[in-house]
Design a protein around this nucleic acid. Structure first.
Lengths: 140, 140
DNA sequence: CCTACATCCTCTAGCGGCTAGAGGTGCAAG
DNA sequence: CTTGCACCTCTAGCCGCTAGAGGATGTAGG
């Protein structure tokens, strides 16, 4: 078969070379076979797996969650209830994070708008940071 | 004067005890005076400073940004342009992060809705993760 | 065949921002 | 005086990589 080097695998999957080795080291990716000169030789399936991992990481899933998702993918006859639960939990997290960031945004806007571009002792940025009680939006 | 222990300082500022020591170790907080038995003795001003740091951390500012904000606060005659710039940069980051999370949320919702709660081989969660091309929302 | 150069290998250490634990001391109440 | 909590220092660990040292391998051109 054609040998896929780690560089090729990295390029095709969008995962960086050291990160590929890191995923192997933590057991997220099976150790591939080696060439005579001890260089890794990946299969096309490995590239799919790497792309899966990358996509999941981009979606914010933690490594342990991805590990579970991958074992699910490896056994397609299982119920997908776990996958569903993981995705739902992540969705809740994301929604929470968005709410929190919106409050933050409002807070920062107030700070920036209030800054009269003068000296620090009239600066609303510093003032608001110094006194949480001045926060106009209930957050954090 | 009344001695404020590290535990008191932590309680009043909302920063955890080991974190207070950590902030001291990285020079974010001046080393306080010590009691005869070598225990830290804080001043009220230290509590304000800790609360400032905590608030800034909650707002997502990095330690180095906070360090700059603190030096600004220490010298109120300076122009607050730096503070303003830091806050504005943070605002841009937050806005970007919100946009990205909204796309993410949409993606996760599609995944979860598409899950027929059957077996993995029909599961949209796994499927979408495996094939980035199925993403309906342009994100990451 | 030889050389140059990119790519690969392993290994260790570092990033940010804490957090946990070991092993010991200080201090206030009963 | 003893109990027991809060404090002290120090080191190591968390996550998810990333950087760098120091060396081996693979490939293209001469």
């Amino acid at each position: 078969m054609k040998k896929i080097t780690i560089g090729e695998a990295a390029r095709q999957s969008g995962v960086k070379v050291p990160t590929v080795r890191y995923y192997e080291s933590i057991g997220l990716l099976a150790a591939p076979s080696r060439s005579e000169g001890n260089q890794r030789s990946f299969e096309p399936a490995d590239i799919n797996r790497l792309a899966f991992i990358r996509h999941a990481r981009e979606l914010g899933f933690e490594i342990e969650a991805i590990r579970t998702l991958l074992t699910l993918q490896d056994d397609p006859h299982q119920s997908c209830a776990s996958a569903d639960a993981i995705a739902k939990a992540r969705l809740v997290e994301v929604e929470q994070r968005i709410r929190s960031l919106m409050a933050l945004k409002a807070e920062l806007e107030t700070m920036v708008e209030g800054c009269g571009h003068g000296r620090v002792d009239q600066c609303r940025v510093i003032e608001v940071l110094a006194d949480h009680g001045q926060c106009t939006h209930p957050h954090h």
